[in-house]
Nucleic acid binder design. Structure first.
Length: 405
RNA sequence: GUGGAAUUAGCUCAGUCGGUUAGAGCAUCAGGUUGUGGUUCUGAGGGUCGUGGGUUCGAUUCCCAUAUUCCACCCCA
């Protein structure tokens, strides 16, 4: 038997209904916030991700679906959505055009990782990107939008908030932190020893207890923000308070990459296992210039759809449409015609096998049909169709001529 | 990439100290005197016990490999 590849899943029937419900709900909300859909390719030049993600850490070498195609192009399946949207933004010269551009997208992303729950090789994200707005109000808008989406889906969450500073205060903080780590000497773990060089800020959320004890007195970025970053962060907190969105400051919430600045946020759920982040986002004012665009302020977020799936509270299903069943082989012909007529406006499902009335009622019930319509011996004799409303429990015998009017 | 656990019916799981017909619940299908569902009762069908090797008279059970899932770590754009 041929199986799907590791970490790559099919999404079918009820799962897909959830999936679709999520997309519909999130898209509706994004449109209400004034965002427009953008579709970008799944495959991009590897250089795009190398430059957006940076050469740092294992990401490029180890965790991307990278290969050389038949035209000898170095390409990658997209590991995230932002880079492609930014590429499109620059390619279509929207950076030069100026103004505000707001996009939302959803689709498959690919990361070559060891799978576990909530961590797949092919997974789906819903995201939005906003270009051209410098104001921290746009950062707040992002958070409000995620909160709206999660609320609409009946999903509980905790919101973690941090500021990453900008090019004025981040580098200085980084140096301060590195010298603090160095002052710890050999007592830090091997992982931290490595992180000190690759991504020093990550040492702050080391899982090692001994390290954590050492880092209690580590300098915190939040106490080392420059004036602009500090006032934006304060404003953001005020806005969230005014909109009664609860948050917790998490000074360990970081983004490893250089183009991130100021606002960083993460929505987490305590009910889905170790991969608990359901949405993450923040400001990335420098990415556009990193990708050869005209410097443009930008902020965005992405939601991991698979991680939300089991948390979504679906609305009560409503009975709709018709189930058609034959109790006699001869009855199929008029039933197919009846179904064809109903399908012009409603759902109509036909069972081809002649069965007992009881079996057909069960069948109608199972597909959640509003009406069960059958034709048997009696109906054939009277050239009519028997219809039962499964909600009102009323039934009627309708002459076929009337039914087809 | 590292370490660990799991894999038996469509689903959730029992079980076999290696032995002849591998079980349950739910689901499916059929019946309950012959045409009334979602909520009853009875019965039936459905499994080369993840895959490939090995040990053995004999393997679903023991050993090895492999695949997938899950957990912890690494990483997390």
């Amino acid at each position: 038997m041929i199986q799907s590849l590791r970490g790559m899943n099919d999404i079918l029937s009820e799962d897909y209904e959830r999936f679709e419900y999520f997309i519909t709900t999130a898209s509706t909300i994004a449109k209400r916030y004034g965002f427009h859909y953008i579709e970008t390719p799944l495959l991009e030049e590897t250089a795009l991700f190398k430059r957006s993600v940076g050469e740092s850490s294992d990401i490029v070498g180890k965790e991307m679906y990278q290969f050389i195609d038949k035209g000898e192009n170095d390409v990658c399946l997209r590991p995230e959505g932002t880079a492609g949207v930014v590429r499109a933004f620059i390619q279509h010269k929207l950076d030069k055009k100026g103004g505000i551009h707001r996009f939302y997208y959803h689709g498959a992303m690919f990361r070559y990782e060891r799978p576990q729950k909530g961590r797949l090789r092919e997974f789906h994200q819903f995201g939005v990107e906003s270009f051209g707005v410098d104001s921290v109000y746009e950062d707040a808008l992002m958070i409000m939008m995620v909160a709206d989406i999660l609320k609409a889906l009946g999903i509980g969450y905790r919101l973690k908030l941090n500021s990453l500073g900008d090019q004025n205060c981040m580098p200085a903080y980084r140096e301060k932190l590195v010298s603090f780590i160095e002052s710890c000497g050999d007592s830090i773990c091997g992982d931290c020893e490595r992180r000190k060089l690759t991504n020093p800020i990550r040492v702050l959320d080391c899982k090692n207890e001994a390290c954590q004890n050492l880092y209690v007195n580590a300098p915190k970025l939040i106490n080392n923000l420059c004036e602009g970053c500090q006032s934006d962060f304060d404003t953001l907190k005020t806005i969230l308070d005014q909109h009664t969105i609860a948050y917790e400051i998490d000074t360990n919430l970081v983004r490893g990459l250089d183009y991130y600045s100021k606002t960083a946020f993460e929505f987490v759920s305590d009910n889905i296992g170790s991969q608990s982040a359901i949405a993450g986002g923040g400001r990335y004012d420098r990415l556009i210039e990193f990708l050869d665009g005209k410097p443009t302020p930008a902020v965005g977020f992405a939601l991991g759809i698979e991680r939300l799936m089991e948390l979504i509270v679906m609305p009560e299903p409503v009975r709709e449409g018709y189930y058609f069943g034959a109790m006699d082989a001869e009855a199929i012909t008029p039933l197919l015609l009846a179904a064809e007529k109903i399908r012009r406006t409603q759902k109509a499902v036909v069972e081809y096998e002649p069965r007992s009335l009881k079996a057909h009622l069960k069948g109608a019930d199972r597909i959640n049909a509003r009406y069960c319509a059958v034709i048997g011996e009696n109906e054939l004799a009277q050239n009519s169709i028997w219809v039962k409303d499964l909600v009102d429990k009323t039934e009627s015998l309708i002459p076929l001529n009337d039914f087809f009017v």
